[in-house]
Design a protein around this nucleic acid. Structure first.
Length: 95
DNA sequence: TATCTGACGATAG
DNA sequence: CCTATCGCCAGAT
């Protein structure tokens, strides 16, 4: 049934909800995983509007920057999951 | 239907 | 490292 780009929100929430502790992804990655490449902005909007109930703190910007306004909140949650990060951003050089 | 906004991304200065 | 600008897409008014 015509599952087109009508439920970007549901797809995004599904991707974020499917992440496991310690896993950090960017808005662009979520957009691709959700099936909406290039719609990183729409992803941020989806989480901002429907981000309740999903581990939104595992989503950061492409530059490793945390969500503006919720930096301490996100940084605390990430650190609680074993992700080395600080208020300035996530340290994703752990490869 | 048109216009503006935004939890983005990349490049330039 | 920081700010500014353009391009991108989807949602809200």
């Amino acid at each position: 049934m015509t599952r087109g780009p009508r439920d970007l929100v549901e797809e995004v929430l599904a991707v974020v909800a499917a992440t496991r502790p310690g896993e950090v992804l960017t808005y662009g990655e979520v957009a691709v995983e959700a099936g909406f490449p290039g719609a990183a902005r729409a992803v941020g909007r989806a989480l901002a509007d429907h981000g309740g109930g999903v581990p939104w703190w595992r989503v950061v910007t492409a530059t490793g920057r945390l969500v503006p306004g919720l930096e301490e909140e996100q940084a605390t949650r990430l650190r609680a999951e074993g992700v080395p990060c600080d208020r300035g951003g996530v340290r994703r050089t752990a490869r």
